[in-house]
Amino acid sequence: MFMKTFEEKWTAWIDDQLTGRELEKFLASLPDRTAAEAEKQNAKQVGSLLREQAMALSNADFFSHQLRGRLDRENAPIRSEPDAIRTGWWTIRRLLWGGITSLAVFAICTVLVFREGTPPSQSQYLTQILGAQVDPTVSPNATITMFQKKDDHVTVLWVDGLQSLPPEYAAK
């Protein structure tokens, strides 16, 4: 049979759970029964008090939750409404800047590609002489010189030695 310890018997006695022979044997084992009775009364009073408090705090969990929530809100770092708005706009602003930057890079690349792909306006360059010749049978002593005067933006084909002509050839 299972033997109860003294502490178990003490708790059972406090709770008035011991009866009969077991109660007699326990009371006989007490060294000071008066002190034990006083202690039992104290324990019963404490128990009654705890039960009353337990009734009063039947919603203890709810209040605890509310209290913790309030404390959390009060202790949380204060973030103003403008900050929140600014944070929202910060994301949009980043998107805007990203878009603008992308467009700028695209435009620059496009310009560079077109500048490389399209030859610069030929009008910026001088006329080029690709070839020139005189009929050696008509002008056997003719010589041809080509040069460019970049300052004046002209190209000159200078022919010497052509047959000289009478002045009437200057007629309209």
Binding site: L130, Q133, V134, H153, T155, V159
Partner: peptide, 21 residues
């Protein structure tokens, strides 16, 4: 008297010196 081939650019005259008269 003379035959020449040229790439004539805008605003860049080609000047050819002909025979003396």
């Amino acid at each position: 008297l003379l035959e020449t081939k040229a790439r004539l650019s805008k605003a860049s005259p080609l000047i050819i010196r002909g025979p003396q008269v």
